[in-house]
C-alpha cells in the first residue's frame, strides 16, 4: 500500500460527473421548459452567481461586504446608459459595464480598505448609497423614478420573444458557468493558496510574503466587475430600472448573504445548497411577504450560531465530502505511480 496526495476523491469524481450531466440537461431547457420556468431558472442562475461572488469575497478573502448592490445597480445602469446613449449592443454594454465597474472599484477599494472588519462592511454600504443617490440625480436616466429599456433596444437582441427569452437564459447560465469556473480555478491556483493563508491568519500570511492588500484588491476588483455583469443581466431580464430597485440592499445583498450563510460560507458547494433552499422557501412562502423574510433572517442567525459552516459544512464534516476538490487529501492506494 502506498499513500498519495491528491485533490480528487471517488466521491468528487462521481459528483462532478452527475453535475456535468445536470448542466447539459439544463442547457437544453429552452426546448422543454415553459416560459415561467425558464425565467425562474434564469433568476436562480443569477442569484447563484451573486452568491458565489459574495462568498469569494467574504468566505475566502475576508472582505465582508454589505454593499455589493453598488455593483449590481452600476451594471444595470450601464446597460441602460450605454445602449440608450452610446447605441451599442446590449451584450456589449453589459461587458463594458463590467470593465467600467472594475475601473471604478479600484479608487473605491483604496478608500474603504482603510476600514477594518465590520467597519469595512458598513463602508461598502456607504459606497452603495453614494451610487444610488448619484444615479438618482441623473435625469437622463430617469432620475429618482428610473426608466425602461426602449423597445428598439430590446428588439435588437432578437426578433421573436421566444428567441429573446432563450438568449436571456443562455446569457444567465453562461455567466454562471463563467463565474463558477473563474472562482474554481482562482482558488486552485497560487492565488487561492495565498487567499487561504490570508483567511487562516492574515499577519502570518503577510510575514510569509503574501501581499495581503494587493491580493484582496484583486479579489475586490474581479468580484466587482463580475457582479456588475450579473447586474446588467438582471436588468436585461427586468427591462426596467430605478435607483431603489437597482441598489436594493435587501434584494442584492441580504438575500445573497442569507443564501451563502445558510448553505455554507467559505465553501464552493455552500452557495449552491443555499440557493436551492432559498428558492424552495421563496416559492412556498412567497405569499407571506414579511414573514418569509423574518424566517429567512432567523434561519440565517441560527445557522451562523449553531453551524457556522452552514448546511454544507455539516454534511461535508460528517461524511468528509467535497464535490469541488480544493483540499489536498492523503489517500491510501495500491498503485505504485509515485515518482
Amino acid at each position: 500500500m502506498n499513500t498519495r496526495v491528491t485533490r480528487s476523491s471517488r466521491f468528487s469524481n462521481g459528483a462532478l460527473a452527475v453535475l456535468a450531466l445536470l448542466v447539459v440537461v439544463l442547457l437544453t431547457a429552452p426546448w422543454w421548459a415553459g416560459r415561467a420556468e425558464l425565467r425562474l431558472f434564469g433568476e436562480i442562475y443569477l442569484y447563484l452567481s451573486l452568491a458565489c461572488l459574495w462568498n469569494l469575497m467574504a468566505g475566502y478573502a475576508g472582505l465582508v461586504s454589505v454593499g455589493q448592490q453598488a455593483y449590481v445597480g452600476f451594471g444595470g445602469y450601464m446597460l441602460f446608459a450605454l445602449t440608450i446613449y452610446a447605441g451599442i449592443h446590449p451584450v456589449a454594454a453589459i461587458i463594458a459595464g463590467g470593465l467600467l465597474a472594475a475601473a471604478i472599484s479600484i479608487p473605491v477599494a483604496t478608500l474603504i480598505f482603510r476600514l477594518n472588519g465590520a467597519y469595512f462592511a458598513i463602508g461598502t454600504w456607504v459606497v452603495a448609497e453614494v451610487f444610488r443617490l448619484s444615479f438618482a440625480q441623473v435625469s437622463a436616466l430617469g432620475g429618482g423614478s428610473g426608466s425602461s429599456l426602449p423597445v428598439a433596444i430590446v428588439k435588437s437582441l432578437a426578433d421573436s420573444r421566444s428567441a429573446r427569452e432563450s438568449l436571456s437564459y443562455y446569457l444567465a447560465i453562461g455567466s454562471l458557468i463563467l463565474v463558477f469556473a473563474a472562482i474554481y480555478f482562482l482558488l486552485r491556483s497560487n492565488r487561492g493558496i495565498a487567499l487561504t493563508a490570508i483567511r487562516d491568519n492574515e499577519s502570518a500570511a503577510a510575514e510569509l510574503g503574501v501581499n495581503v492588500w494587493r491580493t484582496k484588491l484583486e479579489i475586490y476588483v474581479v468580484t466587482s466587475a463580475l457582479t456588475a455583469i450579473i447586474g446588467g443581466l438582471i436588468f436585461l431580464q427586468k427591462l426596467r430600472i430605478s435607483p431603489e430597485a437597482a441598489f436594493s440592499v435587501n434584494d442584492w445583498t441580504a438575500f445573497v448573504i442569507f443564501i451563502v450563510v445558510i448553505g455554507g460560507i467559505g465553501t464552493l458547494e455552500g452557495p449552491i445548497i443555499g440557493t436551492i433552499i432559498f428558492f424552495l422557501l421563496r416559492e412556498t412562502l412567497a405569499d407571506f411577504g414579511t414573514t418569509y423574510l423574518m424566517i429567512l433572517g432567523l434561519v440565517a442567525i441560527i445557522v451562523m450560531i449553531k453551524a457556522p459552516k452552514g448546511l454544507w459544512g455539516l454534511i461535508s464534516q460528517r461524511y468528509d465530502l467535497e464535490i469541488f476538490p480544493l483540499r489536498y487529501r492523503v489517500q491510501q492506494s495500491a498503485t505504485t505511480e509515485q515518482g
Partner: peptide
C-alpha cells in the same frame, strides 16, 4: 468577525 456581523445583519432584517 463574521458571526456578529451576520447575526446583527439578520437581526436588522427581522
Amino acid at each position: 468577525i463574521l458571526p456578529p456581523l451576520l447575526v446583527t445583519f439578520g437581526l436588522s432584517v427581522i
